[in-house]
Amino acid sequence: MSFAETFLNLDVLRNSFPLLLSGLGVTARLGLVSIAAGLVLGLFVALARIYSVQPFRLLARIYIDIFRSVPLLVLLIVVYYALPFVGLRLSPFMSAACALTLVSGAYAAEIFRAGIEAIPRGQFEASQALGLSYRHMMTDVILPQAIRIVIPPLTNNCINVIKDTALASVVAMPDLLKQATQAQALEANPTPLIVAALMYVAILWPLVLLVGRLERRFRQGGS
């Protein structure tokens, strides 16, 4: 067999393409759900970490530290295989989404915290001096400025979450990697894996380019 017939076999590709596409759909859904939930979770944890009263502040910190240090694969296995022992049985999708959200939320919280803390004190003082409520200070003054600072690192976080969805194949999620390995076994040919790799790159490369552009633009201080 030639190199091309081994690694990019068109017959194999034709047979496995529907499976790969459905895997890509699952990966995309899992990634989007985890990213969105992680962003919301991260924002609230960051606000708790900076502004709330003591027990909550400490809890926020502990959460951030733990979920940034636990390997995602371990967390995934705990959620899927260990929680049923205490009566909590989640579907593969829910297990994977929970684990990914908990971890990406911890990273997002640190990113939001850094973004908020990068806003000069004078912005808070001017808002307070005008009599703005805490909520309006955050939504009208602080967060719109912090968003610009946090978009590049948050995009990086998105890239990591999408990559990490591949780990979900260990809890029997029919995601892109799982479908690719199955198709590869079925066809006794590595083509599905190669195509899956190309699909990951096709999703993530634009994001990688975007981060670079945003970072350059932010460094130039444009608005």
């Binding site: 000069p120 001096a129 400025q145 610009r148």
Partner: peptide, 12 residues
């Protein structure tokens, strides 16, 4: 009302 040494206008 307060006017600060460093203006503290909202840049966005």
């Amino acid at each position: 009302g307060m006017v600060f040494q460093s203006f503290n206008l909202f840049p966005h």
